[in-house]
């Protein structure tokens, strides 16, 4: 456990904190990758997922796409793009966007799919236009699962962003690789602790957000459903699925 305290000591050492090469700046880079990539991925994946969820078309393609990406090794993708785009932030960012798309896409369409068909049918029978059905029924009811997908994407990217240093893309991985090549375990460990804490904090924040966005009526007095499982997956709580961390 002494080694562990060496890692903590590395974090607390002010010489490792400030400046462009300090861990505070690197942590910022890690966060910038995370939210940058997830934002770009969301702009692409959310409308696409909504389209699939609303029309039901292309569902099989979306499912196999998001399933297949699970096996894609992120390190390989990063390095391949790094060879193509050169070192720097572009290859990591593109890699992370690609990684974040499948869970967000899945969250978007699964959110729509989980809605009771009778509710949609009733909305249509009341005289809602298709756009109103999407905006007033499907989007609010699908929000918890969409946030779940975004949460998965965020956690996946924040974990994988550690690899950016491999193609000179900065972020906290810099210290890990440096620690490895110079046999400085305290440095690698300190950065690892930072990445882990960052991931756990983001996880906590998203768990909270997910709880907040569940429409009130959906959680209101949930009937106990041990027996018959409702068509709606329980929207809160969840295990982020990450591939290629």
């Amino acid at each position: 456990m002494n080694l562990f305290f060496d890692g903590i000591a590395w974090i607390l050492d002010s010489a490792n904190q400030g400046g462009p090469g300090g861990w505070i700046a690197r942590l910022g880079e890690q966060l910038a990758y995370t939210f940058g990539a997830v934002a770009i991925a969301a702009v692409i994946a959310v409308p696409l997922g909504y389209l699939v969820g609303h029309t039901g078309r292309g569902r099989d393609l979306a499912v196999s796409l998001s399933g297949g990406f699970r096996a894609l090794p992120s390190l390989g993708l990063l390095i391949l793009l790094g060879l193509g785009l050169g070192i720097g932030f572009r290859a990591p960012l593109l890699t992370f966007v690609i990684l974040a798309i499948p869970p967000i896409l899945a969250g978007a369409y699964a959110g729509f799919e989980a809605i009771d068909r009778k509710t949609i049918d009733a909305a249509r029978a009341l005289g809602m236009t298709e756009l109103q059905i999407v905006g007033r029924v499907e989007v609010p009811l699908g929000l918890p699962l969409l946030i779940g997908g975004i949460r998965s994407g965020v956690l996946q990217v924040v974990a994988t962003a550690t690899l950016a240093a491999y193609v000179s893309g900065g972020a906290l991985g810099v210290f890990i690789f440096e620690g490895f090549s110079t046999r400085n375990y305290a440095e690698a460990l300190g950065a690892s602790i930072l990445v882990t804490v960052l991931a756990l904090v983001l996880e906590g924040i998203f768990a909270l957000i997910q709880r907040l966005v569940v429409p009130r009526g959906v959680v209101a007095k949930e009937p106990t459903e041990i027996r018959t499982r409702s068509s709606r997956p329980v929207a809160v709580a969840g295990l982020p699925a990450q591939e290629g961390k």
Binding site: L155, L163, S192, T196
Partner: peptide, 15 residues
Amino acid sequence: LGLLYTIPSIPLFIF
């Protein structure tokens, strides 16, 4: 288990 799963892989290898 959810929290364990949240730990990124490289740090976990290092821990």
